[in-house]
């Protein structure tokens, strides 16, 4: 298999605070292949966004990478100087944030913001950058791009602004885009358009995407593989089809049961009992055990490592090769 584009190993992100050190991301590992879309799902506070921020070196102080490694195309990037990291951001890793209404500087035209980004990373003249900006705006589906270049962000709707943000992320043709909740702030009708656009552009530019969202629907439509985070830890990772249809981890299973379907309407939407533990009070052993219907002694005592169960892998003692339990529970595909 080819070398992964991005390789994250045992990433730990901590926030030293007055009341002790909070671990927002705890031993997360995953790979992204060139051109692949990896979805990262989880509830609020599961560490999704912190993982993304750690990769591009934009953790909010006092947050920091406590341990672990991040490699981009074989080069280690988690220990780079701020200036070297800056040259990677935008050039090799682009970013799309949640709220397009606040992501753009209100005082500059979108053309200026585009050309500024291009000229920071690429050796282009102003005229070349403008041509490229027009082409890019056309590509992301802005009508009459040449006329809109000198428009200000407030002259665009939310969906159009997110298209501009995507154009900004693609400015210097990065190999990877970190999209943090790119559709959450948008109307439902616009969400599908933006998701489709992101997917199409990444295919055309051969750009990989780390798609951070809490919306399983977006993941199911867009991602090639999925990583499920819970309490800052990786619960399960695998191809989207396997994770959605044959989840291994009880948490993933619960998550899938929560997706409303249009056929067979259950009287009530299923939900996972309880709530995710706070970072200050992470339970011993498996973080999910207080809510897990299948928890047993070992789950309380010992934190499960990631067990391979091709095509997926899950951090759950139910999937320990042997010894943990006499026999893994027989699972039924939903």
């Amino acid at each position: 298999m080819a070398e992964p584009l991005l390789s994250v190993r045992d990433l730990r992100v901590t926030f030293p605070t007055r009341r002790g050190v909070l671990t927002a991301v705890d031993g997360v590992s995953f790979d992204i292949m060139p051109g692949e879309i990896l979805g990262v799902v989880g509830e609020s506070g599961a560490g999704k966004s912190q993982t993304g921020a750690a990769i591009i070196g934009l953790l909010e102080p006092p947050g920091r990478i406590a341990s672990g490694t991040i490699h981009l195309e074989g080069e280690r990037i988690d220990r780079l100087s701020p200036d070297k990291l800056r040259r990677i951001r935008g050039r090799r890793i682009g970013a799309v944030f949640q709220d397009p209404l606040t992501s753009l500087n209100p005082l500059y035209t979108i053309g200026r913001q585009l050309t500024e980004t291009m000229r920071t990373h690429l050796d282009l003249s102003e005229a070349q950058a403008r041509d490229r900006a027009v082409a890019l705006l056309g590509e992301v589906g802005i009508p009459a791009p040449a006329d809109r270049l000198d428009a200000y962000p407030h002259q665009f709707s939310g969906g159009m602004r997110q298209r501009v943000v995507i154009a900004l992320a693609l400015c210097a043709n990065p190999r990877l885009i970190i999209a943090d909740e790119p559709t959450t702030a948008l109307d439902v009708s616009i969400q599908a358009q933006i998701t489709a656009l992101l997917k199409r552009l990444c295919r055309e530019h051969d750009t990989a995407v780390l798609l951070i969202t809490h919306d399983m629907g977006v993941i199911a439509e867009t991602a090639d593989r999925v990583a499920v985070l819970y309490g800052g830890r990786l619960a399960e990772v695998g191809p989207v089809d396997a994770v959605v249809n044959r989840p291994l981890h009880p948490y993933t299973e619960g998550l899938m049961a929560c997706i409303p379907t249009t056929h067979d309407r259950p009287p009530r939407l299923a939900q996972i009992e309880g709530s995710m533990p706070s970072l200050r009070a992470m339970p011993a052993g498996c973080a999910f055990h207080p809510r897990c219907p299948h928890a047993f002694n070992r789950c309380v005592a010992e934190r499960p490592p990631l067990f391979d169960h091709p095509p997926s892998a899950a951090a759950c003692w139910l999937w320990a090769p042997e010894g943990a339990r006499a026999a893994p529970r027989e699972r039924t595909a939903s």
Partner: peptide, 26 residues
């Protein structure tokens, strides 16, 4: 602290461009 400054950082703009171009004008 605003999002557009965060986004400007994520675009890899230089500290100078962010502080004096984007932040100061606002």
């Amino acid at each position: 602290r605003t999002d557009y400054i965060k986004f400007a950082r994520a675009r890899g703009l230089s500290a100078r461009a962010i502080n004096f171009g984007h932040a100061l004008k606002n």
